[in-house]
């Protein structure tokens, strides 16, 4: 074999070796990339699933705790003799976050009252300073004040959140409020008159101003457990809200 042929064979061997190395490197690189990608996608998938599971509302229990509409327009819901812990719920019928909280945690709040694990007090207030949301909220809040029966108030409360208008348009019109009251089972004889004449509008405004000042509210929804404000990460997550209330009961 000539010297030239030998070195050519050597060159070929080296080239073949290098190519094999490159192939192996490429396979390893692809495997690493695929591994990282799978982990990342799995993390996003699991995180989304977990978020959805955290935001799953409790099934409503059969039967409400006895519910009373108080003279100041707040509403107390508690089994007889249950005085603590007290769960104060401050919400505005026009506030989208309040609707969102009702969708997620509303059934939990009600269940806790029905189970005798908390005394729940609803404070429907108007927090919006600008139009059209302010008038929308006052009309809805004033209409709720025209309901005298506790269970009917709860049904009307749910109906109002269900029918919540967007924040940019006039909504909660008086004739709608009257018919929603009827469909929610409100039987107070002067309900229609009370709503259409806005008889309770002034009371709604005054109650809101006083409540916001006394309770030092910065927004709605605000939920207080024995007077202490709960964080959003608690009140918007049904299981955490239940946990907080049960811990306070012990």
């Amino acid at each position: 074999m000539s010297k030239g042929a030998r070195s050519a064979a050597a060159r070929e061997r080296i080239a073949a070796q290098r190519q094999a190395d490159r192939k192996r490197d490429r396979r390893r690189r692809l495997a690493t990339i695929a591994g990282v990608a799978v982990v990342a996608v799995a993390a996003v998938g699991f995180g989304s699933w977990y978020a959805a599971s955290q935001d799953t509302a409790e099934a409503p229990r059969q039967g409400l705790a006895p519910t009373t509409v108080n003279s100041d327009g707040s509403v107390t819901m508690a089994q007889a003799g249950v005085e603590s812990p007290v769960l104060d719920v401050f919400e505005d019928f026009q506030c989208p976050a309040c609707k969102s909280m009702e969708d997620s945690s509303g059934s939990t709040i009600r269940n806790l009252a029905a189970e005798g694990k908390a005394k729940v007090v609803y404070h429907p207030i108007t927090i919006f300073p600008q139009e059209p949301t302010r008038s929308n909220s006052i009309r809805a809040g004033a209409a709720a004040r025209c309901v005298t029966d506790g269970a009917q108030w709860v049904a009307f409360h749910d109906k109002l959140f269900q029918e919540q208008p967007p924040e940019t348009v006039e909504g909660f019109r008086l004739n709608d409020l009257v018919s929603w009251g009827k469909s929610a089972g409100v039987t107070a004889p002067d309900f229609a008159d009370c709503v259409t004449t806005q008889r309770k509008a002034k009371a709604q405004e005054q109650f809101s101003t006083t409540t916001m000042r006394q309770q030092k509210l910065t927004g709605t929804p605000t939920v207080k457990l024995n007077g202490k404000e709960l964080g959003n990460e608690t009140i918007f997550v049904p299981a955490k809200l239940r946990q907080a209330v049960q811990a306070a009961a012990q």
Binding site: G47, A51, D55, P96, A97, N232, F236, V237
Partner: peptide, 16 residues
Amino acid sequence: KIGTPALSVQAVKAYE
């Protein structure tokens, strides 16, 4: 955002 999924959904809906 991750601690309050309900609010996160609400924030997306706010864009309509």
